[in-house]
Design a protein around this nucleic acid. Structure first.
Lengths: 229, 229
DNA sequence: GGTCTAATGTGTATTAAGTACATATTTTCA
DNA sequence: TGAAAATATGTACTTAATACACATTAGACC
């Protein structure tokens, strides 16, 4: 039970508001993409003098009348133009001093989107994709948030068919394996990888072959319709 | 980036405050205990008329000057008198309508404590332990929070030496197995269970035997000092 | 069209982990 | 002293994970 629950009077309510409604709530989205055989994350230059020149995740304050999940979907759509993307809450970050302008508790989400999707239009020229590996220091505690989200993603990639969200509709198994390797940060045996993926029934053959590759083309697969995210 | 970061003027800051600082932030603790061969959770009767007679988790609003982790430790200590207990954040719950008195986003934690610990003094007579299985409906979205925390706990019990926190310092393997069975909701084979636990090196033999049991006493074990939570 | 290149596609032996299952032993109680 | 109830323990079987090699194919180039 929280003391907010029974206001004995208007004055009591005001006191409560004065003492407690001093924390702002935000969402921050770790938006993963994949290109150049590297896992990328969508970032923006921080406009705070404290973090001049540093990269920051995409986030916004949660509005009083929207659910926190809605808030993160909103951030995502405003910034990328995409709807219906994979989005998952990871956890809250609530150190008092994490935001220099005041007390802001943030709830971290990660999202997986297909960079090559033609609908993806970055609304802001300051936005850019950066390889996860290249981001050392970030604004706020955003590097910690990114690490936490990446760790969660790694734990889930063989449990749920998540990484397909980062690829175009049709892809060769080599592409998928390189993506797994990029996410996990380790190289995988091709035969064992194919076996491991095969038993999960996440994929469907399209009957098509790769084009414009300088070697024997691989079969193209697509995500199995029934495979749950 | 959040729009809060650069206040162009005092007026702008006031507007921001009026529109955004309307969300209260709370923590709710799923405090697990174990007794009577049943996983228990510490609950209190809701004092809201909307939830009359229903059980509620222990929580409180986060104070402006405390970290969210500190807030949950505070709730735990205020209610149980215990410090240095295992506590882990699970996730935030932020549906707009989850709290009838206003917009309250809560961050859920779970905690594992040893009920038989003599330092445990419930500060409030309305507090009580209830078997997790017996709690059908709860106040707010607390049953959902409990389910989410229980699921997280289940995922971790063979990864980290968590469940020892629910037992007295010395215990027989049977006690441990019954605890695992209670948490997982399924029965386990004794020999396989012992093997699985043995390889983890979480336990140390005390050299003592059970007392006052109506059968051959089992060896008493204690948690291995170096085993990380 | 022949050859080179670079990647695809496939199977098996080995090891590790998980599961199923039965008997002798020890203590208390009557 | 015997019955009851639980402890302690090992092995065969199945499943999952790992390590590893060779024939095949399409494109590029001559």
């Amino acid at each position: 039970m929280t003391p907010i629950t029974n206001f004995k009077s208007a004055a009591a309510e005001k006191r409560i508001h004065q003492s407690y409604f001093k924390i702002a709530l935000s969402v921050d989205c770790v938006i993963f993409g994949y290109t150049e055989k590297e896992l990328q994350v969508l970032v923006i230059k921080s406009d705070l003098k404290e973090f001049a020149g540093q990269w920051s995740l995409l986030g916004d304050l949660v509005r009083p009348e929207e659910n926190i999940d809605e808030a993160s979907y909103r951030v995502l759509e405003e910034r990328t133009g995409l709807k219906n993307v994979y989005l998952e809450q990871v956890q809250a970050f609530g150190e008092c001093k994490r935001h220099p302008s005041g007390r802001v508790v943030t709830i971290a989400y990660y999202s997986l989107i297909d960079i090559s999707n033609h609908k993806l239009q970055l609304s802001d020229n300051d936005l850019c994709w950066r390889p996860v590996r290249s981001l050392r220091k970030m604004a706020f505690d955003h590097r910690q948030i990114l690490d936490t989200c990446l760790q969660r993603l790694r734990e889930q990639v063989f449990e749920k068919p998540l990484l397909f969200n980062l690829l175009p509709a049709k892809f060769a198994l080599r592409n998928l394996q390189e993506l797994y390797e990029s996410v996990l940060g380790e190289s995988l045996d091709r035969r064992n990888f194919r076996k491991k993926i095969a038993v999960k029934e996440w994929l469907r053959e399209t009957g098509e072959l790769e084009r414009s590759v300088l070697h024997r083309p691989g079969r193209l697969y697509t995500r199995q319709a029934g495979s749950k995210r």
